[in-house]
Amino acid sequence: MISRSLVLKLLSAVLVFGAWEIAGRVPVSYAFPTFLESMTALVAMTLDGTLFAAYAETLQPLVIGVLISAFLGIGIGVWIGLSTKFEWLFSPIFIVMQAAPLAALIPLLVMAYGIGLTSKVFVVCIMAMPVIVLNTAGAVRNTPASIKEMARSFLAKDSDVILKIIIPAASPVIFSGLRLGVSAGFIGAILSELKITPTGVGDIITYSRSIADYPSMYAAIFSIILLAVLFLNVLEKLEHIFFGGNHRGYVSD
C-alpha cells in the first residue's frame, strides 16, 4: 500500500510537468520548449559529460565560499552571542547586510577583484554569511537560562558552560543557519556566473540562450534548481537525524 502523501506528491508532479508539456506544445512562446524536449536535452548533456564539467566549475566558488562563510560566520556568531560589547560593535553590520540587497555590490567586487574565482567566492560569502552569523548569535544568546544555571550550580567552569551547554544547545539553530546560508550561497553562485562571467552552468544557460537552443537552457536551469533543492533537503534530513530530539526537549510540560 503506497501512502497517500506519496501518491499526492507524484500526482502533483505529474500535473505540473503535464502543464509544462502542454504549454510547450501549444506553444505559449517560441522560447518555451516542452517538458520532454527539455528532459531529452538534459539526458543528452548528462551523457556527453557537459553537465559534469559545468558543475565541477560552478560548485568551486560555492563550496569555497560556503566553507569560508561557515567558519567565519559561526566564529563571529558565537562571539557576538557571548559578548555584549562585540554584539554592539558587529551585529548592526550583519543586520544591515541581512536586510540589504547585497547583490548590488557585485559590480564593485568585479572592479576590485576582477572576473575570476575570487570575485565569485566573495559573492557567495556576502550572500551566505549574514544568516549564518545572525542565527548563531541568536542561538547562543537564547540558550535557556535554566540549563546554564544548572551547569553553574553543578560547578561548571566558563569553558564547560560554553562547550557543554551553549554550543550543543545552539547547534540545531546554527545548523539551520548553515542550511539557509547554503541556500543563499546557491543564489550567489548562480548570480555570479550569470552576471560576472559565464562559466559552468551559467555558461550553458547563457550560450544556449544566445543560439536559441532553449531545451538545453531549460535543462540546465532545471538541473541547478534540482541540485540545490536535493542538497538542501539532504541537509534538512541530516538536521532531523542529528537534532531530532532537541525541538521538543526544552518544553517542561
Partner: peptide
C-alpha cells in the same frame, strides 16, 4: 498536499537561475 512540495522547492531554490527564462519569455 498538492501545492506544498512546490512551495517548499521554490522557497529554497536558487531563483536567480529562473531570471534568464523570464528574460526570454
Amino acid at each position: 498536499e498538492l501545492l506544498l512540495p512546490w512551495v517548499n522547492i521554490f522557497l529554497s531554490a536558487p531563483l536567480t537561475a529562473l531570471v534568464p527564462v523570464l528574460m526570454v519569455l
